[in-house]
Each structure stands twice: as structure tokens, then as C-alpha cells.
Nucleic acid binder design. Sequence first.
DNA 1: TTTATAAACGAAAACCATTTTCATTTAGAT
DNA 2: ATCTAAATGAAAATGGTTTTCGTTTATAAA
Lengths: 140, 140
Amino acid sequence: MINKYIETLQKHGLKRTPKRLEVLRILSEESAYISPQKLHVLLKEKFLKIGLPTVYRILQQFQNIGIVTSIQQDDNQLYYYLCDCVEKHHHFICRKCHKVSCLTYCDFDNIKQLVADQLDSLAETHVLQIEGLCKECLES
Amino acid sequence: MINKYIETLQKHGLKRTPKRLEVLRILSEESAYISPQKLHVLLKEKFLKIGLPTVYRILQQFQNIGIVTSIQQDDNQLYYYLCDCVEKHHHFICRKCHKVSCLTYCDFDNIKQLVADQLDSLAETHVLQIEGLCKECLES
DNA sequence: TTTATAAACGAAAACCATTTTCATTTAGAT
DNA sequence: ATCTAAATGAAAATGGTTTTCGTTTATAAA
Ligand SMILES: [Mn+2]
Ligand SMILES: [Mn+2]
Ligand SMILES: [Zn+2]
Ligand SMILES: [Zn+2]
């Protein structure tokens, strides 16, 4: 599954560097969203020298080529997670354990029509963030 | 219409201060979302002394009591706008002129059900941000 | 109207996530 | 092996937001 991401990297002219590969590995083993700071700590377990700017650069590049998504929490910080789905969909985020789950749902076509009808305007993009408690956190 | 907000202030134990009243006036005459910095500039036209912390404090308090809503744009900055609607709905935001328009639409009941069915999880909150071009900006 | 008190405020500094700069290193092509 | 643009680290800068703390003010009680 990592291979698919590596292809995407090369398709966008990004070199296959050890740091980038390790970021992919960490993110693919992580089911929760993660802060650049925490990712930096995890990367330092493998690399003696890795700067926070590199972490930020990699995450932004990955976001640009569509392999990670960012969310902004109430603490005014960015968090990132990896999503390998291709179809249009949204994510459910557990407010306790921060796990991210794909939800087969997107109502954008309907929204576009409503925006046209009600406001004579053109809806181009939308962001939907759904939060709550995941199955495990509900049970514990 | 400002009177309704003043009642809300007092209901939540917030004093009726000149700064707060002027923030309400500015926001109610503004159809676009606004940054704390720009609000600060506008407030300085009326008050010789007003600090940026006060602006931030007022906006946060207004958000807490539900008379303003904040959004975070791609520049990682917070913007605020006033919404006097009571029913559950969402907003359409013009990416060019930044005007905010209410949209009579909310699919949360459906989303809750899907989250329960697909993920055995409990959806508690949701944020939907719709962006595009408003009628005026489409025509110009 | 005066007084008391908690809330509100301004000024200054602190905070801290994120970005920029620039010199050095490295991946990948030739 | 050589070359070159991309990638990186270190350090500093940036800038939105928050904290601190001493002073002022709104508001209710006396
Ligand atoms: Mn997904
Ligand atoms: Mn509204
Ligand atoms: Zn959870
Ligand atoms: Zn517009």
C-alpha cells in the first residue's frame, strides 16, 4: 500500500527520500490524526537529524498531492491524517481517541443545487467535519 | 435587531460596554466575515484606546454565547461573522468578496444515522463550510 | 447618589505554531 | 563518476493569539 503513495510522489516530481518514506510509514500505521510536532518526535526515533521545518514541508507537499488531509482543531493547530480512498467521501473523527474513519457519504451535488436555487450562487468546494465518539470510546 | 443581541449579552452575564456595543454594530452592518485585525482598525475609528486583546476577548465571548461564528481560512487565521438565525442551517461563503449567506440546509440527522450504521459510532457535532462565488461576483 | 465589587480593559510581554533564509547535502539523471 | 535541481538542517523571523497585571468601569447594593 505504501508503494501506491511512492508512485504518487514520483508522479508529482517529489524525490523518494528516507524522510518522506518514513513519514508515509508512520502515517499509514496511525489511525488517528497527528500533529507535526508529534510526527517530529516519532521521526527522531529513526533519524538523528531531522528538523521541524522538514516535517512541515513534507506534510504540506503530501497535502498538495492529495495523500494527506489536514484538519484544524479548536486549539488552532493543524493535524494531519492519511486517506487512501479515491471516491468522494467524508471523515468521522473521534473527539476522544482522535481516530479518523471514512464515511461513505457526500451530499455535495445536492448542496450545489440548493446554493444555485436559494442564492443564485456557485458552490465550488465544501468541507465537512463530523465529530463524536467512536465505537471503542463509546464502550469504554 | 441589536437589542436582541444585547439581551443575549445580559442573559450570559456580560456587561453592556461601549466596546461590545460597537462590535455588535460593526458586525451587524457587515455582510462578510472579518478578521480580528480589521475589526480592531474599525474600532479605532471610534475609540482612542482599544487593544487587540480586547477585540479577541470580545469575539471569543460572542462565540461562546452563540452570536458569532468563526471560520478558519487557508491562511490559518480566524475570521468571524454574525448570524442571527435560530434554525439549524449552514453558510455559503464567497471566496472572492467573503460575503456570508445563510443556506436553508442541514443533513445532520441523516449523517448521524449513517455514522451509527456504518461505524457504530455517535456523531455529536458537525461543521460544514461551503465556498464558491456569490451572485454578484459571478456577474462581475 | 455614593459605595462596593467583580468584570472589563490597555499595555506590554509572552507564547508558540509555522515560515523563511541560506548554506550544505543528497537523489536521481546523464 | 559527475552534475544539478531538489531536499534538508539550523537558526532566526514571523505573526496570530494569549497571558499578566495594574488600572478603569459597569452595575447593583446601600
Ligand atoms: Mn477517507
Ligand atoms: Mn446563518
Ligand atoms: Zn475514539
Ligand atoms: Zn462574492
